[in-house]
Design a protein around this nucleic acid. Structure first.
Lengths: 121, 121
DNA sequence: TCAAAATTTCAACGATTGTTGAATTTTAAA
DNA sequence: TTTAAAATTCAACAATCGTTGAAATTTTGA
């Protein structure tokens, strides 16, 4: 269970966040994560519709390294969630309007089944 | 006076906007433009503190092609402004929180004199 | 102990990015 | 008509990006 690196939120620059958001797959992931309010239940493999495991790993790392998401390691799985509170404290209002914007984009990839249905609630 | 291309705001995707914002020079330009509420008075050369003319041309094109700014051609000059209303209609609330976020970033380049002082009001 | 599952790592690749500096274009002004 | 000013274009370059597929890692369960 190698620890997963999460940047201190204060070390994240706005440009880093925007770079992480500049990709449709990552925006699709963001929207899906935003939809499942009850934390920590989404796993990487829930997003294999969006990309191959290896590519997913790449995109999830981008989101994580930009301070947007958190990954909790448990067994062979990684559980994903948004760093909502920290993002809100660091960049007040930004994450909400980003999610709002992304939710309205009909061209982003979407999960065929909602995360909350895949997740063992 | 070759016409300058501006995308229809409806053709702009969120990921395009975020890509345009993923650079400190461009965020610096955005903040400076946001500070000068009375439209159309800023010129490219007002930003030579930020980058060489040629690099500036590159960055300003990125902002323009992402639907964020408008360039009015007049003589040898180009006058810059934010496409505030269109952006607000297309991505409600986004531009404001982006500007807010960027304004708070102490590491972005800043103009030594405010644009409103350089501009022939 | 072995095998499967979940995820990452790695090398490779073509494409795009940010940057530089020189050359070009366009317009205005002397 | 010449010159200067404002900005763009272009070729070049190293660096980073998104993607693929194969190999490795880690943990769980039979």
């Amino acid at each position: 269970m190698k620890p997963v690196f999460h940047p201190d939120i204060e070390d994240v620059a706005p440009a880093d966040v925007f770079a992480a958001l500049a990709d449709p797959i990552r925006l699709g992931i963001l929207v899906a994560l935003a939809e499942i309010a009850e934390g920590d239940k989404a796993r990487c493999s829930h997003f294999t519709e969006f990309a191959s495991p290896s590519l997913l790993s790449y995109h999830l790392a981008k989101l994580r390294e930009a301070g947007i998401t958190r990954m909790r390691v448990e067994g062979t799985s990684r559980y994903l969630s948004l760093r909502r509170d920290e993002m809100n404290q660091r960049f007040p209002g930004l994450l909400d309007s980003v999610i709002d914007t992304a939710r309205r984009d009909p061209n982003l990839p979407r999960l065929s089944r909602a995360l909350s249905e895949m997740v063992d609630a």
